[in-house]
Design a protein around this nucleic acid. Sequence first.
DNA 1: GTCTATAGAGCGATAGAC
DNA 2: GTCTATCGCTCTATAGAC
Lengths: 206, 206
Amino acid sequence: MTKPLTPRSAAKRAAILDAAQACFCDQGFAATSMDVVAQAAGVSKATIYSHFRGKDDLFGAIICRRCDDHAEGMGPIAAGAGDDAASVLAAMARTLMDLLMEPEVLAMYRMVVAEAARHPDLARIYYEQGPVRGKQRIADVLAGLDRRGLLAIPDPWLATDLFVNMLRGEVFHRALLGLDGPARLSLDGTIAEAVRVMLAAYGPRP
Amino acid sequence: MTKPLTPRSAAKRAAILDAAQACFCDQGFAATSMDVVAQAAGVSKATIYSHFRGKDDLFGAIICRRCDDHAEGMGPIAAGAGDDAASVLAAMARTLMDLLMEPEVLAMYRMVVAEAARHPDLARIYYEQGPVRGKQRIADVLAGLDRRGLLAIPDPWLATDLFVNMLRGEVFHRALLGLDGPARLSLDGTIAEAVRVMLAAYGPRP
DNA sequence: GTCTATAGAGCGATAGAC
DNA sequence: GTCTATCGCTCTATAGAC
């Protein structure tokens, strides 16, 4: 994706990536010019072209780097939860929503969606390295709850999909569209109800 | 949003809207030039500027027109369903997913998301005239099922949000990113499980 | 109202000095 | 490797004939 050679000027390369990510997130990919990125990074435009093949290559490098950050952010996904299904589900829900609501994550998702038609390879990389990895983590936890008899989940991946998307719902939808007004649904209420629904649907047979 | 005067050349205006919608959906808003739109519509570029103030105004006119089509597409939302909750839920799910999976709807959503940062007013119009109207229809049906004792739903709007987003899930996510490969989840399987979850969570107390 | 032709600005990418 | 300066192109929007 990028030039394999990086002797010492890796600092400038990082500055370019940081500046480009900020500009792209703020203005969108198509609307951001290389001149603006160069100015924001404190380098000349030619320096950017010595590190990256072009604007598309720069875009790809940002997506890949950001996906790694995603994976780290989901680290101890059910940290500090109790030992019952409700606590674990609620803790995962909170961790997930905190990540999804970060402005940078939203902006990155907007960009990938917007450029998906012209950069299908990048959309695939993002999807597999970002959302899929995160969902796998949640599916593993659900499978663990199933093994311990705390829940009865025949298909953990399907249950994960329903759980995650119940959570995102209107809150994520509104954030994606930049509607920052008062939402018709609260995040806390949505999480509580999603956990309740999961328990009702996947609670172990008594 | 558009000039209030439209004597007789409304035909050209419609042709411009049709062509612009097709081009925008195909190539994206930013990547589509007014020259291409003019050529596709069979008019000159100056004619477009006599009907619309500029590219943004043209974009807004397309969004508004498309929202009306959405509302019609959700017409008899639970048509042909039986009289039990499971049938009604499944019928609504099928109607909704058929609409959401239309290429034009996906493309329109991509565009609104992509331009949300620079056109917040358009994002708001789209959200309220599109998704909110559709969800209200579903919430009304759920409230009806509650009144008839077929389900027990204290907050129909919240239940609608969870239901709709369970359905969209990975299928919509992948379609939005243009990943047309074999999905890890099938649409039919997702609908069946979402209906089952809804019945488990909101089934009437026996 | 609609056309042809063009203005005027900004873009991505590069050449060559250092 | 990094800079300054610039090329060649495409874009949105407009002016003026019909």
